[in-house]
Amino acid sequence: MSDRETTKGVENVTALKAFAHPLRIRLYYALRNARVATVSYLANAVEVPIAQASYHLKQLSQHGFIEPAPQYARDARERWWQLSSQRLRWDASTVLDEPEAAGVAAMIKNSAVREQYRLIEEFNESGDWDTGWLDAAFMVDVTVDLTRAELAGMHAELMAVVERYTALSRRRSSTQPEVERVMCVMHGFPVRRATGGDT
């Protein structure tokens, strides 16, 4: 079963606003990459005090993006978190009709892109990976002329590939030799054509 079949996206501007803080985006990505983590681990990952991280994690929890994972706690003081079934995903044709939603969505997207590229730069600047992983990692940048329907079709095909590998990942242990957590970043969007030059 794919991630899209088991999760839900954002359905209103109130939930969007819960993410309208750059630190919450960073905490969300840190938790997603860890799968399950303590408040202290996440605070250290984003380099903020534990109390500050705890406050923002509770805000994300109140709006359904993350949930407690008490089964991992060794005592009553230890607080663990994991992602819930709600993801930071929405359909522009529905959510963005609400007042303020477009501005909030733009703020969230910009914060998410900054975090994605912070992680990409961290990988590029790290000397921790052997040449096999460096060869396997990829970056794709292409410009093509498409209709809206064709862009949507490309997205669907790419997601089918992602979902196939996600299913493969779920069927095995993340501690298996040669297995690392991998982040893929894909963007597909229209750009304005330059005027006055060659087409």
Rank of each mutant, 00 (worst) to 15 (best):
M1P: 06
M1T: 10
S2Q: 06
E5Y: 10
T6C: 13
G9R: 12
L16A: 12
L16Q: 09
A18K: 11
F19N: 08
H21N: 04
H21D: 03
P22I: 01
R24Y: 03
I25K: 10
R26A: 05
Y28K: 03
A34V: 04
A34S: 13
A34I: 05
A37L: 04
T38H: 05
V39M: 07
L42W: 06
V46A: 14
V48P: 00
V48Q: 01
P49Y: 03
H56L: 08
L57F: 01
L57V: 00
Q59R: 14
G64L: 03
G64E: 04
F65N: 09
F65C: 08
F65L: 09
P68V: 04
Y72D: 09
A73L: 13
A76V: 13
A76K: 15
W80T: 02
W81L: 12
S84Y: 03
S84C: 01
S85I: 11
Q86H: 11
L88E: 00
R89S: 02
R89I: 00
R89P: 00
W90Y: 12
D91V: 05
S93Y: 12
L96G: 06
L96P: 01
D97N: 14
E100R: 04
E100V: 00
V104M: 07
V104N: 08
A105Q: 09
M107E: 11
M107A: 15
K109D: 11
N110S: 15
E115Q: 02
Q116L: 13
L119T: 04
F123C: 08
N124K: 13
E125D: 11
S126M: 02
D130W: 12
D130F: 11
T131K: 09
G132E: 14
D135Q: 02
A136S: 07
A136G: 05
M139L: 14
M139G: 09
V144C: 08
D145K: 15
T147P: 01
T147M: 04
T147W: 05
T147Q: 06
A149T: 05
L151Y: 07
A152D: 13
G153N: 03
G153W: 03
A156D: 15
L158D: 05
Y165K: 12
Y165H: 13
T166P: 01
L168M: 14
S169F: 06
R170A: 12
Q176G: 06
P177Y: 06
P177M: 02
E178Y: 06
V179I: 07
E180T: 14
R181H: 11
F189M: 15
F189A: 15
V191G: 10
G197Q: 13
G197P: 07
G197E: 09
D198C: 12
T199A: 15
T199P: 08
